[in-house]
Amino acid sequence: MKELKEFTIPFVGLKIGEHWFEFTIEKPFFEHFEYNEFNDAGVKLNVLLVKKATLLEFTLYYKGTVNVNCDVSNEPYDQKIDGQYRFVVKFGEDNNLEDEDLLVLPYGSHEVNIQQFVYESIILAVPIKKVHPGIEDGTLKSDILDKLEELRPKAKNENPEGDQIDPRWNELKKLLTDK
């Protein structure tokens, strides 16, 4: 995958210590990864780079909203996301693929691209089940919710027609309890 240049951080000229970088993440960033679950995105990203003599420590702080479709009603809404992610960059010949919080760069590297870490941390900050806040507090009105309520299974003792239950069913239910 092609690297986005704005997420490439040159660390060679930086002094040992803390360095801050700011980014704004929008929908084109996710389109670059061919991720189409977001209708829109507006996330502020602050990156803390702590440069040490033999390694680099990154902490990503992100906060904002992504517009997603509700899993229940399919209505779009803004899902707030907020979090942080830490990873370490080491230098060496061995490419360690077992630890997702460790990136090994070859000796002589002068820059690091953090786009994959940014992408994964934001995607994982979105809840697995996306439910519109209007569904939880009962303020959302939609045809889909009305139809779901209409088709909702009735309780065991609820008989919507008010008809008498066939007495043969009661005899069959006794078989389940007579063990």
Rank of each mutant, 00 (worst) to 15 (best):
65 T>W: 00
60 L>H: 14
25 I>D: 00
48 L>T: 10
69 N>K: 15
21 F>A: 11
78 D>M: 07
71 D>S: 04
33 F>D: 00
60 L>F: 12
29 F>D: 03
60 L>P: 05
45 L>N: 11
51 K>I: 02
36 N>L: 01
27 K>P: 08
59 T>G: 07
31 E>R: 10
70 C>V: 12
22 E>L: 01
17 G>E: 02
31 E>M: 03
73 S>I: 09
32 H>N: 11
62 Y>I: 03
79 Q>L: 01
42 G>T: 07
21 F>K: 08
17 G>A: 10
31 E>T: 15
21 F>N: 14
68 V>N: 01
58 F>W: 04
26 E>H: 12
44 K>A: 03
53 A>S: 09
41 A>V: 14
66 V>H: 06
39 N>R: 06
37 E>H: 13
67 N>I: 02
48 L>D: 01
48 L>W: 05
49 L>C: 14
64 G>F: 04
75 E>C: 06
29 F>R: 13
79 Q>H: 05
44 K>D: 08
73 S>A: 11
57 E>C: 06
34 E>K: 15
46 N>Y: 06
78 D>T: 04
40 D>P: 12
15 K>H: 12
51 K>A: 01
47 V>I: 10
64 G>M: 02
49 L>W: 11
23 F>T: 10
35 Y>C: 05
33 F>N: 00
69 N>Y: 15
68 V>Y: 15
36 N>V: 03
18 E>P: 05
38 F>S: 06
